[in-house]
Design a protein around this nucleic acid. Structure first.
Lengths: 206, 206
DNA sequence: CCAAGATGTTATACCCGGTCAACATTTCCG
DNA sequence: CGGAAATGTTGACCGGGTATAACATCTTGG
């Protein structure tokens, strides 16, 4: 249904995103206005909002949905008899071995997260995305209408990932090595996931 | 330093708060503008902001700080040898026996929280307050520069309280009794706190 | 190929929360 | 009392976001 049209759309969207990212990193998220972005991308402000519902989405566009996607896939493809939480632990182990970008904490990542931390609105949006991820994970754990325990477990998983990331970044900012940051990340992941597994295992249906 | 001035200030603040609360409950949080509030309280919009930094603070003014205050007191006054988390569990037991308002889930509470849930900005502010509470609790658990594990534990505690509250309200909204809502609340509190206790006990310094 | 409908884009005007720099009022102190 | 300093208050303004409707461009089917 319209190849020409679609490619133009993709191009426009990409241009807006690129221009915005550049401006943001050059001058800070809050210091750049949407009018500037629109002008720099040579579109109207309305068009920007057409592609990105909120200003924050220009930076965090589906950033965190990736996590959830990984988790969902792993849970669905887990071997029979394996509990969802156990499978998530296994997944993290695999990501670690693969040195997957998602669990990689280098200078670049530190820059990105420091940038996010510098903007209250970005942080707020991130909290919102976390909540959405938790809700999604809860339904993955316990079906369309998860009970309180499933919601709590899902929330704890998301919180653990978030906290572990924050601490890994903290290590880097204190001058720690990438290796140390990674170690801190996985140590917290282990402890958090283990706690959730212990909690959820008293109610084994998954 | 100005008695006249101070009493006038308190009066003005109270008037703004009262007027705002009334308008909010009558027509919904997002439907009431700050101009309206200012006009109804017979002050300028800036004066409103002078007393309440954000619109959300007109409803959530220190709502959640109370929790943290309880927690802090209990942790500091705990008997020697008792771990902080264990003390928090004991505190929740005491609040339950006292049928303390903080753990009471009746129609009034359901109304209030439904009201909050209906406003994205109120929910966002609540998430922010939760994060602040977690940070405060972390320093209470582990001193001025808490490590990752303390932050994780604190985050889990706050998350547990929040999730338990949400589920209790959910029970009420499905037509459940106040007793049932309360039972759900404390069941989740128990499971969450126990999980945190198990996690944190491998690192016993508090 | 062209007309008609669908879809993307724009201009404009507006709303609302929040900030800023100046203004008015009160208090303090010589 | 009188002027400086502190403090409360204000109108003007900014930026994100929405609504609406006109405009441009592409697609489809006869």
């Amino acid at each position: 249904m319209g190849e020409r049209r679609e490619s133009k759309k993709r191009e426009t969207r990409q241009r807006i995103s690129d221009v915005a990212t550049e401006l943001f990193f050059a001058r800070g998220f809050d210091a750049v206005t949407l009018d500037e972005i629109a002008a720099a991308a040579d579109v109207s402000k309305m068009t920007v909002f057409n592609y990105f519902a909120r200003k924050e989405d220009l930076m965090l566009d589906r950033q965190d949905d990736l996590k959830l996607l990984f988790f969902r896939e792993a849970i669905r493809a887990r071997p029979p008899g394996q509990s969802p939480i156990a499978e998530l632990r296994a997944l993290m182990g695999r990501l670690r071995e693969q040195k997957h970008p998602f669990v990689r904490f280098d200078r670049h990542a530190a820059d990105f997260w420091r940038f996010v931390a510098a903007s209250p609105s970005l942080e707020a949006r991130l909290r919102e995305l976390n909540d959405e991820a938790a809700e999604g994970l809860a339904t993955e754990l316990a079906g369309p209408t998860p009970d309180g325990l499933a919601r709590l477990a899902a929330g704890m998983i998301v919180l653990t990932v978030r906290t572990a990331r924050q601490e890994a970044i903290r290590v880097l900012e204190r001058g720690g090595s990438v290796k140390k940051a990674s170690a801190e990340f996985f140590a917290l992941i282990d402890q958090g996931f283990a706690a959730v597994q212990g909690m959820a295992s008293s109610d084994t249906r998954g």
